[in-house]
Amino acid sequence: MKYLEIFTVESNIALNKTCFLLVLRSPVSLETVAAGQFVSIEVKGEDERILRRPISIHDVDKTNNLLYLVVQRIGKATNRLAEIKKNDEISLVFPLGNGFAIEGEKPLLIGGGVGTAPLYLLAKEFKSRGIVPDILIGARTNEQLFLTNRYSALGNLSISTEDGSVGERGLVTQNSVLKKDFDVIYSCGPTSMMRAVADLAKKRNIKCYLSLENRMACGIGACLCCVNENKEGHNVCVCTDGPVFLSDDIKL
């Protein structure tokens, strides 16, 4: 079941130069929300930009009906969204898409930039099952990282930055944590990064899930704009068939 509801802003905190954390209170139960799903937010007050923005779910507090979203400022609508304040009201369509399948005993979660956001709830799921995941976060520089203390509380955190300002210098696919043994990899981030992660997983014969964030208009499988080609050569909707796909099932 999907809902269209008006949420109330609890807080809006800047995390770094471009990302901010929205905590939103839901008027209905968030019991069905799963790691890897997303919401689409209506952005009011920006007349030029009328479409909703798809935003991955960073965390959920089901006891208090709170939803946590990490949003990156990338244009007019997200800049407008960055200005919302406590007690503002905001319309959400949720929960959308299929979440992560939780499997494996030795999982590695690889996030790039704002794509790290949905991996938090996934790490929490593993922890609640008594599994400590390895979490690898990649960024260009330390200024782009966010909430790393929250991630390190849930798993073994490794960081790669392109400029070496924190963690290991280089790309996530060069990080020394990859020498360890894993039975499943989950990744969300820039397409080039996920492609490299998928290649690596294939070489090492590790099951690999990717979470895509294609541009979309509706989020519910009606507009057919957010498609990605699957291995059979058919276009499938990232919003309803994904956003999480097995890397072997799609062409990236």
Binding site: E48, I50, M216, A217, L224, C226, V227, G233
Partner: peptide, 17 residues
């Protein structure tokens, strides 16, 4: 199969598909 991605561009007060 339709056209290749990207199929959507948002423009002032509208969208191009």
């Amino acid at each position: 199969e339709g056209n290749a991605y990207p199929r959507l561009a948002e423009t002032p007060s509208g969208m191009i598909n």
